[in-house]
């Protein structure tokens, strides 16, 4: 198939349409606005709906309403906008509505800036909304993955009746790379639980409320069982030159691209270094990290945050081998050279 040189943010929309999504409810915010703009351009052409809502709060609730109808629907925003959507995300998780949420992370806290950060890890992966819920979280690192993971997100959302987040950063969104667009999903699966606008709707209810504590506990137990199933089946992770590595660097999104350069250059100089890149941030690739521990002596986690994902690495490794952390914040992206310096120090220590 022929490739197209395209921005990551636009690849998300084309991927979504190819996945059968015909509904987009959004609100503009830099650096995610290209997603809304592309959706505004393409959705009407493919017989779909684009609506710019009055706020992020409204847009996630429009998505909630649309998802109740069993179709594929999405929204996209960036960090401060995602904070506003959190209530709706919790409701969707409680009501078990499949939907796709894209977060193109920017600098925070507060208004911060529009440069790339990875400081939404906690609010997306650990749950920024209330209640015992989980989002499946996919972290693309290329324009191709912006398309592929958006498509995958719709499949996972439907399979588990759960919101799925594509968590990317400003760089992956703004970058242009060749994308090979797969054929479209031609028919969407029927969702018996969803409203069909027919006589059987009297048996259907989309709701997250359960007054009786015992019944709400049962609902929570059911959700937790679903999450356990997801943890068993849906971990995705890439390892790069880790087989004989003494030191492994861990990072996701744009950082994993920089870490690949770090590994390639240090390998040329004879350093036994590899990279692990979590693709699903939840479920987190704990078994894959566990596997490294039989030969890896040190770990360096690199993030564009104050150290959010590193907590999950620590939970996995505990104190069996040293875990080092290097970060930049505020929109500063480290150069490969800067990280190489850190790594060499660790090799020499």
């Amino acid at each position: 198939m022929a490739k197209q040189l395209i921005k990551g943010n636009e690849a998300i929309v084309k991927g979504a349409v190819l996945a059968g999504c015909r509904y987009f409810f959004g609100y503009p915010i830099t650096p995610a606005s290209e997603i809304a703009e592309a959706a505004a351009y393409y959705m009407p052409q493919v017989g779909g709906t684009f609506l710019q809502a009055e706020s992020e709060i409204a847009s996630i609730n429009m998505v909630y309403g649309a998802a109740s109808g069993g179709i594929r629907v999405m929204t996209a925003s960036s960090s401060p906008g995602i904070s506003l959507k959190m209530e709706g995300i919790s409701y969707a998780a409680g009501s078990e509505l499949p939907l796709v949420l894209v977060d193109i992370m920017r600098g925070g806290p507060g208004l911060g800036n529009i440069a790339p950060e990875q400081s939404d890890y906690n609010q997306i992966v650990k749950g920024g909304g209330h209640g015992n819920y989980k989002l499946l979280v996919l972290a693309p690192a290329s324009a191709q993955e912006m398309c592929d993971f958006t498509m995958l997100a719709f499949d996972l959302a439907d399979r588990y009746r759960n919101p799925v987040c594509v968590l990317a950063d400003g760089f992956i969104g703004q970058m242009m790379e060749p994308v090979d667009f797969p054929p479209p999903v031609e028919k969407l699966a029927d969702k018996p639980w969803a409203l069909h606008c027919d006589a059987d709707d009297e048996k259907r209810l989309i709701s997250s409320i359960e007054l009786e504590p015992e019944r709400l506990e049962a609902h929570n137990r059911k959700l937790q069982a679903k999450y356990a199933e997801i943890e068993k089946a849906e971990i995705r992770c890439e390892t790069y030159k880790t087989d004989d590595a003494e030191l492994v660097v861990i990072g996701y999104g744009v950082i994993s691209r920089i870490l690949q350069s770090v590994v390639d250059r240090l390998r040329q100089d004879g350093y036994r270094i590899g990279m692990l890149r979590p693709i699903t941030l939840w479920p987190f690739p704990r078994p894959q990290i566990e596997k490294l521990l039989d030969h890896v002596q040190k770990i360096l986690v690199v993030e564009l945050s104050n150290g959010q994902m590193v907590d999950d690495v620590r939970l996995t490794v505990k104190d069996r081998i040293p875990i080092h952390f290097y970060n930049r914040m505020g929109g500063v992206v480290p150069s490969p050279e800067e990280i190489i310096e850190q790594v060499i120090k660790l090799f020499e220590a």
């Binding site: 409810f25 709060i57 409204a58 609730n61 309403g65 409203l195 709707d201 209810l205």
Partner: peptide, 18 residues
């Protein structure tokens, strides 16, 4: 009928979606 329970204040947005 078909029923959707929504968050506080958001019924018009949910109604818009469906």
């Amino acid at each position: 009928t078909g029923n959707i329970q929504s968050a506080h204040g958001r019924a018009p947005a949910v109604a818009t979606g469906i």
